[in-house]
Design a protein around this nucleic acid. Structure first.
Lengths: 142, 142
DNA sequence: GGTTATTAGTTGAAAATGTAACCATCAATC
DNA sequence: GATTGATGGTTACATTTTCAACTAATAACC
């Protein structure tokens, strides 16, 4: 067995390396934790999500999501509304302020990622995409 | 921009999901933190490594590596020797006991991963490999 | 050869995360 | 319609990680 062929290691290593140069953006420039950022991004793509739905999408343990939502709410970036049908559920959604914040941060993140991937040819990008797609199907994500 | 097409997100998600079912093994069954496990694995593949070399390979911040090494040394799985040429450097290596521990844990990890990837055809595996390889080249890892 | 800058690694305090226990609500069963 | 069990979400406490400051050793420069 060689570590360099061990899939979890390879994925973790690559995930770590790609995240490295974007982490600084949400963390230092915008004071968000990784969980908060991931929750924010997910909320930006859906009209509203419950904590449990976020757990699946982020993905993260419910305590992480709970705390991330609490912090984002405190900032006024997120509002929550308990479901009238099932009062255990709480639907979280971005406020206008949260949407603006996202619109400010996302392009910075995108630019950093674009710069990182810039050296790749279109064919290379496709190869990467195909490889990830296989795994996503395996995990029923796609 | 769609989150599902955003590379860092995709990589992180997949890394997270693949790690999920192996974490229990090193964590609960063998009482290792993720950092300790990753340091252990890397040391299993090289006769000896300095903390800085481990930082690159793991990859992790030096404080994580420092603490992981301290713990592994305390368990008697790792020994360290300061370099006589440059006495700032400390070369870490597995002890026999550490090697035995690795030989006990690794097959469990491998089995869990194999089970996970079992549904994939040979062609799918190749596709995954090719995709990751492109990124590894980008990061000068391969 | 003395001063300054770098580099390897450690440590303490603060922040984030994981674990388990918890509360509130709903569903199922009797 | 009371009891039991399951589910959504939060909280308290322990562990881990991060950040910044630090020591010790080497390198660079005058």
């Amino acid at each position: 067995m060689f570590l360099k062929d061990y899939l979890p290691y390879r994925l973790n290593l690559l995930a770590e390396l790609t995240s490295e140069n974007t982490r600084e953006i949400y963390r230092r420039r915008h004071g968000l934790t990784r969980s908060e950022w991931r929750v924010l991004v997910n909320l930006a793509e859906a009209p509203s999500l419950t904590a449990t739905e976020l757990c699946v999408r982020v993905p993260a343990h419910k305590t992480k999501v709970s705390r991330a939502l609490a912090e984002l709410e405190k900032r006024g970036w997120v509002t929550r509304q308990t479901d009238p049908q099932d009062r255990r559920l709480s639907h979280a959604a971005l406020t206008l302020k949260g949407r603006r914040a996202f619109n400010r941060i996302m392009p910075e993140m995108q630019a950093a990622t674009d710069a990182l991937l810039h050296p790749l040819s279109a064919a290379d990008r496709q190869t990467v995409h195909d490889g990830l797609r296989v795994l996503e199907r395996l995990f029923k994500l796609a």
